[in-house]
């Protein structure tokens, strides 16, 4: 049977932009106004996203108000999932709003028994120093008379959860460093 999956986003402009403002308020026919508050997504800024879990690529709509995510639901316009989601995709709200998310740079010294909070301004140059130290100590220009220009002292892992643009820069950076051990989820 045909069931209605009315879209949150407007049919044209909003959809094209991938962001819009929801103006859907309570509609006619509400019998128990006192018991039925308006939908929590009323007057939120809505933007589309794609699910970060499996490879199906379902569409979702994120509703945010005052810079905070209010709700995340399936995107009814999306041709793959048509608004539906599984338990993981439906739980995406708790990725956005979750006290367990990391909020600052953490550092654990060798042999240390706790995390120390650090700033980006401290961490980024410190990491760069270690990359350089290890690369310089392990870089091999030649092997058996042939140019190889690589390091086997640094490994890079990860990336299947990153955006394409991020993966691309990661790939580019790793090759520039001469990293031979570059692997990620796709192998396992």
């Amino acid at each position: 049977m045909k069931i209605s999956r009315r879209t949150f986003l407007g049919a044209t402009g909003g959809s094209a932009l991938g962001t819009a403002v929801s103006l859907f308020g309570p509609q006619k026919g509400r019998a128990h106004a006192a018991q039925t508050p308006p939908m929590k997504t009323v007057r939120t800024k809505q933007s589309t996203t794609i699910c970060p879990y499996c490879g199906v690529g379902c569409g979702l709509i994120v509703s945010a108000r005052d810079g905070k995510v209010v709700s995340i639901e399936g995107d009814p316009d999306h041709p793959i999932n048509e608004g539906s989601l599984c338990s993981k995709g439906m739980a995406l709200y708790q990725v956005a709003v979750n006290e367990r998310r990391l909020r600052s740079v953490l550092y654990r010294a060798p042999g240390g028994s706790r995390w120390e909070e650090k700033t980006w301004e401290w961490a980024v140059p410190e990491i760069a120093k270690r990359i350089k130290r290890t690369r310089d100590a392990t870089f091999r220009r030649e092997e058996g008379g042939r140019t190889v220009n690589r390091t086997e002292g640094i490994a890079c892992l990860g990336g299947a959860a990153l955006d394409n643009e991020e993966c691309y820069l990661y790939s580019k950076l790793a090759r520039a460093l001469g990293v031979a051990y570059l692997e990620h989820q796709a192998r396992i």
């Binding site: 945010a64 995510v69 995406l92 956005a96 909020r103 961490a123």
Partner: peptide
């Protein structure tokens, strides 16, 4: 070094699904 990264609803960019569709995402917050 444990570096905190943004979630998928906090940044903009594309991801490619199993069917090779590259789909764009937006930063909601």
């Amino acid at each position: 070094f444990l570096l905190p990264s943004a979630s998928s609803v906090e940044k903009e960019g594309s991801i490619t699904n199993s069917a090779r569709w590259a789909q764009w995402r937006y930063a909601a917050v």
